[in-house]
Design a protein around this nucleic acid. Structure first.
Lengths: 332, 332
DNA sequence: CCTTATTGCTTAACCGATTCAGCAATGTTT
DNA sequence: AAACATTGCTGAATCGGTTAAGCAATAAGG
């Protein structure tokens, strides 16, 4: 099917070395004569030579491939993250192999293993946090990787995150400043540290403003976007507590789900319940024009993650970069 | 860093072949003794042997990798497609290298080239349609690939699509049946055949129901989600034509954008303008509870694309599979 | 007991590149 | 003209696997 360097060498009565040098652009550097270079290049063009990256990578130890492990590529949030990572990676001639961990720590560890077996040059990971085995192995082997969106405070690793506590603190406080006194908190995936932190932000803001935590105002969903569960639990919430004047959502998926419920049940919320959400999307902002948002700088995260990773790949002994990016607040 | 078969062989005083057979699970088949198998496996475990997939692939000619080329991984539609493709690929022990073409034909061709250089076993492509060079080369070389969502009627290739004309025909007709007479059509990316087909569906439905096409009711956006452009053009539309009683959207992004406009301008649309959209999302359905939808079976598409591709990889001379999947209609 | 099978392994080529060491033929010094 | 440098290439090892062919030792068959 395709031509190899060996075949070109034979056809031109040259050694593989010469041909390899020319075709990898090292002709001049390796003192191959102008005429030879022309000849080889022309012949390669003629027979439509294409370098086999597999072979090259095996030889050089560089694949120009980054492994990306995220909970789900179908999730808009992570898809956007993947997009910015891809764009930045491309600038540096890197390509992405994307795998979804489904938030499963065991699977995450397997994916890490598999991607390393495939010899990716480094990994960008949104860790599931349920288990550390995968990450610990990377650390032990000093394999280049960057955590993104979530991290392990007890581990010395590269990471790019935001301060979830502060983000949720500001969200909550903004509702308080807007006059809310009965502020519900709706969350999910509470096993994640990010969620714990956001919760802390909510609690701290209440405390600092002399509001006390009311357990009835705290709702925990099992899934981020299970409409039936939302219907049930929000139904209960609204039945149990009257005069809720604000809701803080730990994810915009939850906010969307709850708005869906309110609209369907024709429960008026505009000007009655102030809404604040960690991150957002266009639809949500249409449905709740005055929603307070703590927006995660997804794009910047992606760019920084790639840059950090590539630095680490270049210099394996680099000091770990720990970055906490600024949250973007809107309508607070 | 990591141990190779060669090193294991030396350590155990065995040949590389024996070790390779055992570690690739061919021990029995190649008549290696039980004891040897145990010994090798145990030692491999001890030294934490990990096969180098690069080397294996170079040798076998199989990478267990599918190249996926889509316009943008950040786009929810294609992200969902990628998700189902990833899930199905995983079942067959395949991994995805995902690249965004940005709808640029030249770039698409480059990506195809690059992925082939990386020796992917096959490609799944949402073609940009702006140029055929990339696809034609694949065809010429009989390289396994599947087109998805869009295809070239003049080419004999594997493809998985839906019937866009019929989809839009039904959407339009459903509005007519609901009593609409002044039905606007809002579209974008008109260089794409899918868009042409959807437009045809709109036109045909009008004709078949004795409504004539009114140029003023046709709006073409340059971008799928540029709010400013939407504001402008929809503003014009509503100024120029009164009593619009229905709108057919060729994409749900446009529908979302226009709803955004209507809500912001506080223009009431519920019960006044019937909305129909090619594909949809949760938010849209909240904002327009009675929206008529021609839903693309993304997940099925993904699954079929992978299955078709893997068949083609196994049997290179397989007859091309041309599949037009059923659209899912809602509230028509 | 000699022939033939079977078992259990080894040898060596190969996949398609990269790269170090080296060598012959010129060119330059002195 | 001898000594040395430079030019322009070649040879061979290597990356880490796979796999066809073959060989020695033991087992089975007649």
């Amino acid at each position: 099917m395709s031509v190899s360097i060996k075949e070109i060498a034979q056809a031109l009565n040259l050694s593989k070395a010469t041909v390899s040098w020319v075709l990898s652009g090292q002709g001049k550097a390796k003192r191959v004569s102008e005429a030879r270079i022309k000849q080889v290049q022309q012949y390669a063009e003629e027979v439509n030579y294409r370098p086999n990256h597999l072979a090259r990578s095996l030889s050089t130890g560089i694949t120009n491939t980054i492994g990306l492990i995220i909970p789900s590529i179908g999730d808009t949030f992570f898809a956007q993250m993947a997009q910015s990572i891809e764009a930045e990676a491309e600038k540096h001639n890197y390509v992405l192999t994307i795998c979804s961990s489904r938030g499963d720590g065991k699977r995450e560890a397997e994916l890490i293993q598999m991607l390393r077996d495939k010899q990716v040059d480094g990994l960008i990971i949104v860790p599931s946090e349920k288990t550390l085995t995968g990450i610990n192995l990377l650390l032990k082997d000093n394999f280049p990787f960057v955590l993104i969106d979530r991290y392990f405070p007890q581990l010395k690793t590269n990471y790019i995150v935001v301060d979830d506590t502060i983000g949720c603190y500001h969200l909550t406080e903004s509702l308080i400043h807007k006059g809310c006194r009965k502020i519900a908190y709706i969350t999910t995936d509470t096993h994640l540290r990010v969620m714990e932190l956001r919760y802390n932000g909510y609690i701290n803001a209440l405390k600092d403003n002399n509001l006390c935590f009311n357990e009835d105002l705290y709702v925990e969903m099992e899934k981020n976007n299970h409409l039936k569960e939302i219907d049930e639990k929000i139904g209960n919430l609204l039945n149990n507590v009257s005069d809720i004047d604000g809701i803080v959502f730990s994810t915009h998926y939850l906010a969307m789900g709850v708005i869906h419920y309110l609209v369907q049940k024709k429960i008026p919320y505009q000007n009655q319940i102030q809404i604040a959400s960690f991150h957002s999307n266009t639809a949500l902002e249409i449905l709740v024009p005055d929603i307070a948002i703590a927006r995660i700088p997804i794009e910047e995260m992606g760019v920084r993650a790639v840059d950090t990773l590539l630095s680490n790949i270049k210099q394996p002994e680099m000091a770990k970069k720990e970055m906490t990016l600024d949250i973007i607040y809107e309508r607070l």
